[in-house]
Simulated scan of single mutants.
Amino acid sequence: MRVETSPPIFPLEPSAAEAQREIKEEFGFFSDWSERYQYLIDLGRKLPPFPDAWKTEENRLLGCQSLVWIVPRGDASRLDFEAISDSAIVSGLIYLALRVYSGRPAAEILATTPDYIGDIGLARHLSPTRSNGLAAILAFIQDTARSRA
């Protein structure tokens, strides 16, 4: 059984496409990847507290080397996600994914390719294990949208 959680924390841009555009702009301010990694860590710190009671095997996302817990709620008209990781960088990756997808209708989630990953260079700069973790997060979001659409 999934846990019902608090209201969404992300200021919603008008669309997932707009969220991706803003992420691309923000990462464009940084001249190198050490600055971008630090920004990812800072974003991860913005995730709301995730109660220990929600850190169950049922809420644990498999496919990540780091520990990741994710809780979906809602229906086809609006899906919200709350998540956390024990890794600072993975928490930043979660923040970006939730910024694009959380609070959106299932149809918009399913129609939105995560272009921001390539646009900001994440695809080239993540380790294989972090790339696998990001893929698992995005797959979970897509699968949830598909099952509730």
Score class of each variant (00 low, 15 high):
Phe140Gly: 09
Leu67Phe: 08
Leu134Asn: 11
Ser34Gln: 15
Leu62Glu: 12
Ala123Thr: 04
Lys46Val: 00
Ile137Trp: 05
Ala17Pro: 01
Ser6Val: 13
Gln20Leu: 01
Tyr101Phe: 13
Ala136Phe: 01
Glu18Arg: 07
Phe10Thr: 00
Glu82Ile: 09
Pro48Ala: 05
Pro128Asp: 02
Leu61His: 15
Arg124Ser: 14
Ile94Val: 06
Val100Ile: 11
Phe30Ala: 09
Tyr101Ala: 05
Ala19Ser: 14
Ala135Lys: 15
Gly44Lys: 00
Ile137Met: 12
Arg36Gln: 12
Glu4Thr: 07
Lys24Tyr: 04
Asn59Lys: 01
Phe27Gly: 02
Arg21Glu: 15
Glu108Arg: 11
Glu18Val: 07
Tyr101Thr: 06
Glu35Met: 14
Arg2Ile: 07
Asn59Arg: 02
Pro48Leu: 01
Gln142Arg: 15
Ser127His: 13
Gly74Asp: 08
Ser85Arg: 06
Ala53Asn: 04
Leu62Pro: 01
Trp33Val: 12
Arg148Ser: 10
Asp52Arg: 09
Trp54Ser: 08
Val68Thr: 09
Ala111Ser: 11
Leu43Lys: 01
Thr113Cys: 05
Trp54Ala: 10
Val90Phe: 11
Ile84Ala: 15
Gly118Ser: 02
Lys46Trp: 00
Ala136Cys: 05
Ala149Asp: 11
Ile94Gln: 01
Ile109Glu: 12
Arg146Asn: 10
Phe29Glu: 10
Leu122Val: 04
Pro114Thr: 14
Leu79Cys: 13
Trp69Asp: 07
Gly92Phe: 04
Asn59Ala: 06
Phe29Ala: 13
Glu4Gly: 03
Gly74Trp: 11
Tyr95Ser: 00
Leu98Arg: 02
Glu13Gly: 01
Ala88Tyr: 09
Asp119Val: 03
Asp86Ser: 06
Pro48Ile: 00
Leu93Glu: 05
Ala139Phe: 04
Ala111Pro: 05
Thr112Val: 04
Ser85Ile: 02
Leu96Gln: 04
Ala139Asp: 14
Glu25Thr: 14
Ile70Pro: 08
Leu62Lys: 08
Glu26Arg: 04
Arg146Met: 09
Ile120Ala: 04
Pro11Asn: 03
Pro128Gly: 02
Pro114Gly: 15
Val71Pro: 06
Ala145Asn: 10
Pro128Gln: 02
Ala19Asn: 01
Asp42Ala: 05
Pro51Ala: 09
Glu35Asn: 12
Arg36Tyr: 08
Val90Asp: 14
Val100Cys: 10
Leu93Tyr: 02
His125Glu: 06
Thr129His: 11
Ala76Asp: 12
